[in-house]
């Protein structure tokens, strides 16, 4: 019974989520872009000339109907991968994205092995 209610709740929630997040949010994009002049700062946090210009351009692109991903691709094309804080998944960056989960998997297997040893006895 309880389980059923929980499942219904989740289905309800899934609905509300699908309805949202169609228009890209500029504030999120700004946070994911690295300011090139200030090196360690995001565009959202920076008030440099470059960051201000970039903010205008991103807003324009959103108005043109570009998706978040398209905007990142455009900027990577112009400035290189350095400008995005989330490295795109490609040959060079594949290890970065895969290794953590690989480690998680291995860790899980080790624990399973330790626990299983006991149950077999």
């Amino acid at each position: 019974m309880k389980l059923k209610i929980i499942i219904i709740f989740f289905l309800l929630q899934l609905n509300t989520i699908n309805a949202k997040v169609l228009v890209a949010d500029p504030n999120i994009i700004f946070k994911n872009l690295r300011c090139l002049i200030c090196q360690g700062q995001s565009v959202a946090d920076s008030n440099s000339e470059f960051a201000q210009t970039l903010k205008l351009v991103v807003k324009d692109k959103i108005r043109e109907g570009k998706s978040e991903k398209e905007i990142y691709e455009f900027l990577i094309d112009k400035y290189g991968e350095w400008i995005v804080y989330k490295p795109p998944f490609n040959k060079v960056n594949s290890l970065l994205w895969i290794l953590p989960y690989f480690a998680l998997l291995i860790g899980g297997l080790i624990i399973m092995a330790l626990v299983k040893k006991r149950s077999n006895r």
Binding site: S42, E81, I83, Y85, V92
Partner: peptide, 11 residues
């Protein structure tokens, strides 16, 4: 690889 990437909050 002689390339520079940024790994930040979204990652």
């Amino acid at each position: 690889n002689d390339s520079k990437v940024s790994v930040g909050p979204p990652f």
